[in-house]
Design a binder for these strands. Structure first.
Length: 834
RNA sequence: GCCGGGGUGGCGGAACUGGUAUACGCGCUGGUCUUAGAAGCCAGUGGUUCACACCGUGCGGGUUCAAUCCCCGCCCCCGGCACCA
């Protein structure tokens, strides 16, 4: 019979569906295992990246089920977001309609791949049943001060017509559309992720065991912790007295404070205007500040921008040396980092060094490398390495690391400053000036000000009847039925917040909602949440290393502190899969190198597509789609099909690894059974320990090759047939998580009663792996010269004797002196000659 | 500059704890089957060489009986962070 993948696959998909084969709940005696793949944005069609991601997840889910775990494996839709609005504008449809029709289409495509989801838990984040809980979280955050309003310059994407969080700006460009991001001053809602900076950083240590190192390191970089001190520099008054306010700086190098010879302020520093007031320098400073502020953000932040500054005419005083320090405004000082002011230590900081050379500012060496003497006149660059303190009063002679502590102590006892920690991480701006998102449950009342909605008024429904704007502007402010409302506090006339939430908010908690997706009187069922969380294995693209994965970690901690869950981290283990490329490049419509999964499934079937995605490369690595490669996978499936067909009169309905030593009486039978058990061992280890599906599949291919070579010899007698049947059963069982449809079909055609999906993972046995003879490699001076076969477990002496008498070895040993013989039983002999 | 990952046949990739380098697949070559082809099945396939043998895991050293693997010094590629004080 011909291998008709289409009808076979649809048949089994229907069978699994109708019997609820992959339904699960939290009332179970089995150990739980929660495997999750990052849910897709419903763009309309699945692409190969999804297929790879979800195929990896499905193997893990099915494998763990076979190993006896109670597996939660859900799927849903990250359904709010810009493309829906853009498509709606373009095609004159409604974002909701567009989204739900895409979801229907993609759900069909995923079902056609045979993934073992519990579809009862499916969720779409754009439904009120989902986002109402998000609005509830917002209210709890509001009560706790975890969400607040702030006016500040924000990242504005002119094309998307909305602001972006810092994490969503990649090298100055919008993460979504690559437009250059502009700065815009707006009042926005922020989540206090910085309150959790330390915990987010510290808990990365716990994740090191289960997360890829590079993701952990990317998050560490992003959080960007710097340990240092704040130091207060008093301003010098017009009369020279130090009583006219002060400038606070942040530094990690308080050990160099005696070398601070001038002060650098960011152009945006709030003190600038006060310092120059009435001074002759004022016009020049104002012109400089204006020029810098108007610079393009990307140009301004580029590393080869020349250091420039202007003197303010004002001075402050070094609190340790009493030195009078001119205050400059400098283009390289960032207003948004630290305090926006830098104590300049030109002798020990490269930027300050260049700045001082350019403007002829004084330098003072305060750290001397051991056995050397720095001379400011001769220095070509700042000395930024370790050394001993000089010109630093009571701290002279201390190694600079020790001096950091001593000076920090001194700051604190003298009140000149304090130890402090600075983070690069900024609070998360969650306001978006777009329509297709979750409404922020807040109103603005003339009488009461900013008022949070009441719990009982949730959900604040996103109105579906709106008139969209051609330019992408949100229609919500122009929708009176939505924007005009009653104040929850005084009942008076009020205006609703018309910004919606960043869609990364929805994806920050969906994994927890799956544990009780249909619950309608609360966000989570506590028992289900406690049972299933955390996610044991999370799988997705590395492009979310910071964005989604950092937000989700923060959200879990915030929800924990609001009493929703008792959990510190959402994802115990993370697998970041590589991209699917074509001709070395990312697939894209503009390049015309897109491989359509639907087409591939139509031609080869879901099993072949799944198999190839897993076989082509280990999951972490990028892989290049190859047309001849998928042909190879299709050929392998055909090879199994033909094997079963050819042996149809021979094979018996038996379980994997069921042939006994007595069945395998002949040398061929013994070898095959041995190979069978070795394959089970290797495939199991490759999948469970390392997610190396490619080598697991390679091992099964070897077993199939061995079956082809042994089948004619073995089909002659009862024992041989039993060995063949057992090995075929093993092939099908091991492949069932990878190519489940053909595995089910052949399993049934051999006459087995149940489904292979419900089979346990086979057990290999030591006895079957044991060999009578083993091959020992013989080397002379580390070079391979021959092999000998010895009885299994032979002792070193016997192995050595056999090795030395091997003809080729013996030939090489003529006329040389044997100095030493290294024998590794079971492996090799190395004869050292000289 | 700092942090992380990587460099193995014509190609994708194996090699577990230092012990047969190149498993498995692709491609290629030959055989078989066929009137012929396709498909299938079988065999071969790192380089030099008739062979013996020699060379071979980015480069140069080192440790070891033995190094793709460990150590030292470099080169190149990919990703992240970066005038961050």
């Amino acid at each position: 019979m011909k291998y008709d993948h289409q009808s076979i696959e649809i048949k089994w998909q229907r069978t699994w569906e109708e019997s609820g084969a992959f339904h699960c709940d939290h009332h179970s005696d089995k150990p739980k295992y929660y495997v999750l793949e990052m849910f897709p944005y419903p763009s309309g069609n699945i692409h190969m990246g999804h297929v790879r991601n979800y195929s990896i997840g499905d193997v893990v889910a099915r494998f763990k089920r076979m190993q006896g775990f109670n597996v939660l494996h859900p799927m849903g839709w990250d359904a709010f977001g810009l493309p829906a609005e853009n498509a709606a504008i373009k095609h004159g449809t409604h974002p909701a309609k567009w989204t739900f029709s895409n979801i229907d289409n993609m759900r069909t495509q995923l079902r056609r791949l045979g993934y073992s989801y519990d579809w009862r838990r499916e969720l779409a984040t754009c439904t009120p049943e989902y986002y109402r809980w998000e609005q509830q979280f917002f209210l709890r955050f509001f009560e706790k001060g975890l969400v607040y309003r702030k006016q500040a310059p924000q990242n504005w994407c002119p094309k998307c017509h909305t602001v972006l969080a810092n994490e969503q700006v990649i090298e100055g460009l919008c993460w979504r559309c690559d437009s250059a991001v502009e700065q815009k001053n707006l009042t926005q809602w922020f989540l206090r992720i910085t309150d959790y900076a330390e915990e987010l950083l510290a808990d990365l240590d716990k994740l090191e065991a289960g997360w890829p190192e590079r993701v952990v390191s990317m998050q560490r970089n992003w959080i960007g912790k710097s340990i240092g001190a704040e130091i207060v520099f008093p301003l010098e008054g017009t009369d020279g007295s130090a009583n006219n306010g002060s400038i606070t700086v942040f530094t990690t190098r308080q050990d160099t404070v005696f070398g601070a010879t001038f002060m650098s302020l960011a152009p945006e520093h709030p003190l600038v205007e006060q310092l120059i007031d009435g001074k002759p320098e004022a016009p020049a400073v104002r012109a400089f500040v204006e020029r810098i502020r108007n610079m393009d953000r990307i140009v301004r932040q580029s590393d080869d921008l020349e250091k420039e500054g202007v003197f303010t005419g004002a001075y402050c005083v070094n609190p340790f040396t009493g030195r009078r320090m001119p205050i400059w405004v400098a283009n390289f000082v960032l207003a948004e980092y630290g305090t926006g002011a830098v104590m300049a230590v030109p002798a020990h900081d490269q930027r300050d060094f260049e700045f001082a050379r350019k403007y002829d500012l004084p330098m003072q060496v305060v750290i001397q490398p051991e056995g050397d003497a720095l001379d400011t006149a001769a220095m070509q660059a700042a000395w930024t390495e370790a050394g001993l303190l000089v010109n630093s009063g009571e701290f002279d002679g201390l190694p600079n690391e020790a001096a950091k502590q001593k000076i920090a102590d001194s700051l604190e006892t003298s009140g000149k400053g304090r130890r402090t920690v600075n983070y690069r991480l900024r609070d998360w701006n969650i306001s978006r000036q777009r329509y297709w998102g979750a409404p922020i449950p807040v109103v603005y009342c003339d009488a009461c000000g900013v008022v949070a909605e009441k719990d009982e008024n949730l959900p604040v429904l996103l109105p579906l009847e709106v008139r969209t704007h051609e330019d992408g502007r949100s229609p919500l402010p122009d929708t009176p039925e939505f924007a005009e409302c009653a104040c929850p506090k005084c009942g008076g006339k009020a205006r609703r917040e018309t910004d919606t939430m960043d869609t990364f908010v929805e994806s920050s908690w969906y994994f927890a909602r799956y544990t009780s997706a249909s619950k309608d009187d609360g966000a989570f069922d506590p028992a289900a949440l406690k049972y299933w969380m955390p996610v044991d294995q999370y799988i997705g693209g590395v492009e979310h290393a910071i964005l989604h994965l950092l937000y989700s970690r923060f959200f879990v901690k915030a929800l924990r502190d609001c009493g929703y869950m008792d959990l510190d981290e959402p994802f115990a283990n993370l697998l970041t899969q590589g991209m699917v490329l074509k001709e070395g490049a990312k697939m894209s419509k503009s390049k015309g190198n897109v491989v359509d999964p639907t087409e591939m499934i139509a031609r080869y079937g879901a099993d072949t597509v799944r198999l190839f995605c897993l076989f082509a490369a280990p999951p972490e690595r990028d892989f290049d789609w190859s047309d001849s490669g998928i042909e190879g996978s299709y050929r392998f499936i055909g090879r199994i099909w033909r094997l079963a067909e050819e042996l149809s009169g021979v094979l018996m309905p038996v379980k994997a690894c069921s042939a006994t030593a007595a069945d395998a009486a002949t040398p061929q039978g013994k070898d095959l059974r041995n190979k069978e058990h070795a394959t089970v061992r290797k495939a199991g280890a490759d999948i469970s320990d390392r997610f190396q599906f490619n080598t697991a599949i390679a091992a099964v291919m070897e077993l199939v090759n061995a079956l082809y070579l042994a089948k004619d010899e073995l089909s002659g007698d009862e024992g041989g047939r039993k060995v063949l049947s057992s090995s075929v059963a093993t092939v099908l069982t091991l492949l069932s998580p990878i190519t489940p449809h053909i595995a089910e079909e052949l399993w049934a055609s051999i006459g087995n009663a149940g489904r292979i999906t419900d089979e346990p993972w086979p057990q290999w046995s030591e006895e079957a792996l044991a060999r009578d003879e083993e091959t020992i490699v013989v080397q002379i001076n580390g070079k391979l010269r021959g092999r000998v076969s010895v009885p299994a477990g032979a002792d070193a002496k016997a192995i050595e004797a056999a090795a030395l008498s091997e003809p080729n070895v013996a030939r090489h040993l003529e006329d040389v002196t044997v100095r030493k013989v290294v024998v590794i039983p079971g492996k090799l002999v190395n004869v050292v000659v000289g």
